[in-house]
């Protein structure tokens, strides 16, 4: 039975990922809501879980609860190696660009301190360009090039050092999480939550079958025992 439910869920999830509308699925939660109703028709475990939750609220979390716990976006403690390498590259690029920029600015400053030449060289002015748009740069070409190169290097370093963008579509986002963090254990997922958490975990890790009457009997016995001890 559990296998059946799981396979049907997988099929439904696949449909959601490919972007097909699953009948009247409205939002992500609504989609999950439909999963729950499907699930309820297959087994009564959801009902059982809820009963059990009423009986012993601290032990059992219902699928609904774990589903509704929206994942927070703290960064996962597990950082893969490529991210570190990338960060190092961008830091090195930024440092190099900053040194270049500093050198270029100081060179321009030194150049400005030089006494002006007696015969000013004619500035290059093309006839096609408007005179107001003509950048009158009277710096040597090497300082100009160095400045522009430094800025380009810094731009590249900043962009490549920035954190990754996240997919905006819910299905893409959830699929990416699931694919990337499949191998993470519960320790990472449970501690950090956030990106390490599979958004479908609540559906994946449900109680398959529970002897609800037995559990209730045990719980009643436990209550009776504790009550007797306390009073």
């Amino acid at each position: 039975m559990r296998f059946f439910v799981r396979s049907s869920l997988t099929a439904l999830r696949g449909a959601a990922f490919q972007g097909h509308p699953v009948e009247s699925s409205i939002t992500g939660l609504d989609m999950l809501g439909m999963n729950r109703s499907m699930y309820r028709t297959f087994t009564d475990v959801n009902l059982v879980a809820r009963e059990n939750y009423c009986a012993n609220p601290e032990v059992v979390t219902t699928p609904t609860q774990s589903l509704l716990a929206t994942p927070t976006h703290s960064r996962s403690s597990v950082v893969d190696r490529s991210t570190l390498v990338m960060a190092f590259h961008s830091a090195a690029l930024n440092l190099f660009g900053l040194i270049l920029l500093f050198h270029a600015v100081y060179s321009a400053y030194e150049h400005a301190l030089l006494p002006p030449p007696t015969s000013h060289p004619p500035l290059s002015s093309s006839s096609t360009l408007l005179s107001s748009l003509n950048p009158r740069i009277d710096l040597p070409a090497d300082i100009t090039l160095e400045t522009i190169l430094a800025v380009l290097i810094l731009c590249f370093g900043i962009v490549s050092g920035s954190p990754e963008l996240r997919p905006v579509e819910w299905a893409e986002w959830a699929g990416k999480l699931e694919r990337e963090k499949q191998d993470l254990t519960d320790a990472a997922a449970g501690a950090g939550g956030g990106m390490g958490r599979n958004p479908y975990r609540g559906l994946d890790e449900r109680v398959g079958f529970l002897d609800i009457r037995g559990a209730r009997r045990e719980f009643a016995a436990w209550v009776r025992e504790g009550g007797g001890g306390a009073s």
Binding site: I26, G28, H73, R166, P167, W170, A171
Partner: peptide, 14 residues
């Protein structure tokens, strides 16, 4: 939007 729901938090992050 109903067919392809959008993650608001991802949009803000980006």
């Amino acid at each position: 939007l109903q067919i392809h729901p959008i993650m608001q938090e991802s949009m803000q992050h980006n």
